[in-house]
Design a protein around this nucleic acid. Structure first.
Length: 473
DNA sequence: GTCTCCTTTTA
DNA sequence: AAAAGGAGA
């Protein structure tokens, strides 16, 4: 007899309820990770996954239960592992994306039908989608009431410690992680990712501590400045489950108790954790939101498909420095500061009138924290096609946003070296700079750096007209 | 029905 | 100062 622990987006030992439950049974444990051959993981996510599995595998091995890697479909692999190991149970922590729910529901039924105890747990959210309801019994559609209702459930269960020792099973074949080719080889484009990130549970915990010790005090104001290290940068760790939201909550809450001057920073940080909960809540209750606009009238939106413009956006060659800096940060580090995500997303959807789904797909290809719920709900927020009653004027101005949040152009200069010598006054609008100043800075618009691919004022008017054209009534 | 409120906005 | 429209109590 033995218990299989199926790891998915919970690549950690601490506060892992499925693992803890398996330990509790007293049976030998077989930890397994299955690389779904049908899952379309983006390149940056694949890179991260390699590091995360390497770290998890090392820790499990140290404790006596090495991680077994298999590739294929869980529906094929788990039953065959059950047979191979004479397992009596399979435990896992729940995921909330529609495709994962469909897969897990079927699997649970078929395992149960063959007499296997298939048990799932919540180790990924502070509260599961069905646990947070409006007074009328339905799901929330507005963040603030959702957040109030979620926060009222605190304190949350205390996070569990990692098990010290595990009883493993010997002789179960595993794939070789390096053969999965999750890391890019030819060419190896992951240099920027390696510089920016350290995947794995240990690094997730270290990052949380560092953030709470050094940054959270200033979080409320610094979090909006892309040039500054002011955010937690925990998103990829949370996405892969190297750290749990309960661990984050507990640690942040403890800081605000011991350090009152940090409490407002902690509050605004936890609110962002609340946004992660909210997007998972939305995607759970409206799974069609993953691929379709939540607001049906957006089916008729006059999108302007243009591959050349899409590609200019993807490559960071729009001629708007804040957008280009963001897109290049994404390309080189697998990450983009949240403020800039909003600006560049608004630019794609409103200024270029390109369907939000193209943007969402690009982000999922390139982000280390690519997360269906956060990403799709975020894009729909920007597009105005999501649940919130979006003001029609939710159109970011790339120049004023740049001037407001990157006043000295430090962020621009970091990622758009062509503009490094341009005077601050024009760093966010090089096309208005006097030609002598451009010459001194070594810039030739249209050659060394693009001219704006659209004129924002005109693009804004066009977006407003497009939005008006689909208005109900 | 009434009242309040709404991450990120714009000009 | 203005902005659409609706959620939530």
């Amino acid at each position: 007899m033995s218990v299989i622990v199926w790891f998915r987006q919970d690549l950690r030992l601490a506060d892992n309820l499925a693992l803890a439950a398996a330990v509790e049974t007293g049976e030998p444990i077989l930890p397994v990770y299955i690389l779904d051959k049908e899952a379309m993981l983006g390149g940056a996510s694949r890179w991260w996954l390699h590091g995360s599995l390497e770290a998890l595998g090392g820790e499990l091995e140290k404790r006596g239960a090495p991680l077994v890697l298999r590739r294929g479909l869980a529906a094929d692999i788990l039953p065959s592992l059950v047979a191979e190991t004479k397992a009596s149970a399979v435990f896992w922590n729940r995921c909330y994306e529609p495709t994962a729910i469909a897969r897990d529901t079927t699997l649970k039924a078929s395992l149960a039908a063959s007499g296997i105890a298939a048990k799932s747990f919540n180790a990924g959210l502070l509260a599961e989608p069905c646990e947070v309801q409006t007074g009328g019994g339905g799901p929330y559609k507005v963040f603030t009431p959702f957040w109030r209702s979620l926060a009222a459930r605190a304190p949350f269960a205390a996070p569990l410690r990692a098990p010290k020792n595990l009883r493993g099973l010997a002789g179960i074949a595993s794939d070789d992680l390096s053969r999965w080719n999750l890391r890019p080889a030819k060419p190896d484009w992951a240099g920027g990712l390696r510089t920016a990130w350290r995947p794995g549970e240990k690094h997730a915990a270290a990052r949380l501590s560092y953030f709470l010790d050094e940054l959270v005090v200033g979080y409320a104001t610094m979090r909006d400045l892309p040039a500054v290290e002011g955010t937690s940068r925990l998103s990829p760790h949370l996405h892969f489950g190297e750290i749990s939201p309960r661990q984050v909550w507990a640690a942040a809450d403890a800081v605000s108790r011991t350090t009152p001057e940090a409490s407002s920073g902690v509050m605004s940080f936890l609110r962002e954790v609340g946004w992660r909960e909210f997007t998972h809540h939305l995607i759970y209750h409206w799974p069609e939101m993953v691929d379709h606009a939540w607001k049906p009238e957006f089916e008729d939106f006059p999108w302007a498909h243009d591959d050349a413009l899409l590609s200019a956006w993807q490559r960071g060659r729009t001629g708007y420095p804040i957008v280009d800096a963001g897109m290049r940060e994404l390309w080189s580090t697998g990450y983009m500061h949240n403020r800039v995500r909003m600006i560049s997303a608004s630019f794609l959807v409103k200024d270029l009138l390109i369907q939000w789904r193209h943007g969402a797909e690009w982000f999922e290809d390139t982000l280390v924290d690519a997360d269906i719920a956060n990403n799709r709900a975020g894009w729909q927020w920007v597009a105005g096609s999501g649940v919130d009653a979006a003001p029609y004027f939710r159109i970011f101005n790339p120049v004023t946003q740049g001037e407001k949040f990157d006043a000295d152009g430090q962020y621009i200069r970091r990622y758009v070296p062509e503009l490094v010598r341009l005077d601050n006054r024009y760093i966010h609008r090089p096309w208005e700079a006097p030609s002598a100043m451009l010459a001194v800075a070594g810039i030739e618009l249209g050659a060394t750096y693009p001219k704006p691919i659209v004129e924002h004022a005109r693009a804004r008017a066009r977006a407003l007209a497009a939005l008006a054209s689909i208005k109900k009534g």
